[in-house]
């Protein structure tokens, strides 16, 4: 969004970050995180927790894909989930808007709460939830319609725009926010699939922005893109983080370091069950990791 409404508190890191907690591992997280944050004052959060995970586990049938994950994701910050492939980071991400509901045989344990409400609860409408927690996928997946219709699809189905001019404004705004407007403003009626891969991905981001979500989940959004397109998406993520809560899964550690404020490192053992190893402000995780395994991973010794 163009109107700068950030209320970022630059200094209150120590007190606010004390909410950062971690169940497994047995390390004194609070102290470490606080120390790290004090050492390098971060621009991050507005002290509000967007999503709170408590002992989250995911089962695919008999297989336990993720076990005992607990941490908080902060509002208007970018959180990266990193780890080797098969560590359950995408699986975990898909819990945040219950996309896992669509895969039969999936079971989620523990709680994921938003403002104190468990989103896995029976009283929560998954469809309604997804409208607030948008998702951008690994492969750009524009609908087989024009660029304009791609953006309008969500608002139309959800009844977000009252008139045609409102819809047009919404389309322009979403495309501008996704840094795509200048490239497509003269060809809004061309099919979304005619765009390049990077543009398609920004179109998908614009499509999500058009339904005004609170949280945007990104599942390896750049893995199908070339380096230049990747840089553009990363720029965009940094801009969006001023207004949205972003959770991004990436296998690219440099990307995590470049775009995120917080990083969670997951790792799966022999039995292919992913666990949270470390959750820290990004800078700290990459400069002074607390866990030996994190250090091994970020220095490229395995994974």
């Amino acid at each position: 969004m163009t109107n700068e409404t950030t209320t970022t508190t630059e200094t209150g890191a120590e007190t606010n970050l004390s909410t950062g907690r971690m169940a497994g591992g047995g390390v004194d997280v609070k102290a470490t995180v606080a120390a790290a944050a004090a050492a390098s004052p971060k621009k991050t959060s507005t002290d509000q927790v967007a999503l709170s995970l408590n002992n989250v586990g995911v089962w695919y049938g008999q297989h336990e894909a993720v076990q005992g994950v607990s941490f908080d994701i902060y509002q208007r910050a970018t959180t990266a989930l990193i780890g080797p492939s098969g560590c359950g980071k995408s699986t975990l991400l898909r819990c945040f808007n219950r996309m896992n509901d669509l895969i039969p045989g999936t079971r989620v344990t523990g709680t994921i709460s938003v403002e104190g409400v468990d989103i896995m609860g029976k009283d929560v409408d998954a469809v309604q939830l997804r409208r607030h927690v948008g998702m951008v996928f690994q492969k750009p997946n524009p609908f087989p319609m024009s660029i304009k219709e791609n953006i309008a699809f969500g608002p139309k189905r959800l009844g977000l725009a009252k008139s045609k001019s409102q819809m047009d404004d919404l389309i322009e705004e979403s495309l501008r926010d996704a840094a795509l407007w200048d490239e497509v403003k003269d060809k809004l009626d061309e099919p979304g699939t005619s765009l390049s891969g990077g543009q398609q991905q920004r179109l998908c981001i614009a499509r999500v922005l058009a339904v005004k979500p609170d949280i945007i989940l990104m599942d390896e959004p750049c893995s199908a893109l070339d380096p230049i397109a990747t840089l553009k998406i990363e720029d965009l993520m940094r801009t969006l983080a001023k207004d949205y809560t972003i959770v991004v899964v990436t296998h690219n550690m440099q990307q995590a370091a470049r775009v995120s404020d917080w990083t969670a490192f997951l790792l799966a053992g022999e039995e292919r069950t992913g666990r949270l190893i470390e959750y820290s402000p990004t800078e700290q995780l990459f400069t002074t990791p607390r866990d030996k395994r994190t250090e091994d991973y970020i220095t490229g010794r395995f994974g």
Partner: peptide, 13 residues
């Protein structure tokens, strides 16, 4: 785009 803001914000926020 400012025109779209109030109408959608009511729902979104």
């Amino acid at each position: 785009m400012a025109a779209a803001q109030p109408a959608t914000d009511e729902v979104a926020r």
